[in-house]
Amino acid sequence: MSGQQIEHLVSMANQIALNFGEKRNLTEAARKTGEHLEKFWTRAMREKLSIEAADSEVPLSPAVNLMLEQQRGQIGS
């Protein structure tokens, strides 16, 4: 998994969150971002984002961060 791809994935996820109104409603944007990724991204891409986001030089946006936290919470619960 190259650095280029994870950064690309993070950047795309951040854009999705921003366009789902991250600045207006963080929780809603996180929910919609999660649904969007579920609907349009491959499982491998979602897993990479979840597992390797921390390695990305591009920081996760707050909504993507929240979405991943919630997903991890669900998996953990």
Binding site: M1, S2, Q4, Q5, H8, T42, M45
Partner: peptide, 9 residues
């Protein structure tokens, strides 16, 4: 674009 990214990888 995902195919091309994955191909490069």
């Amino acid at each position: 674009p995902n195919m091309f990214d994955a191909a490069v990888d």
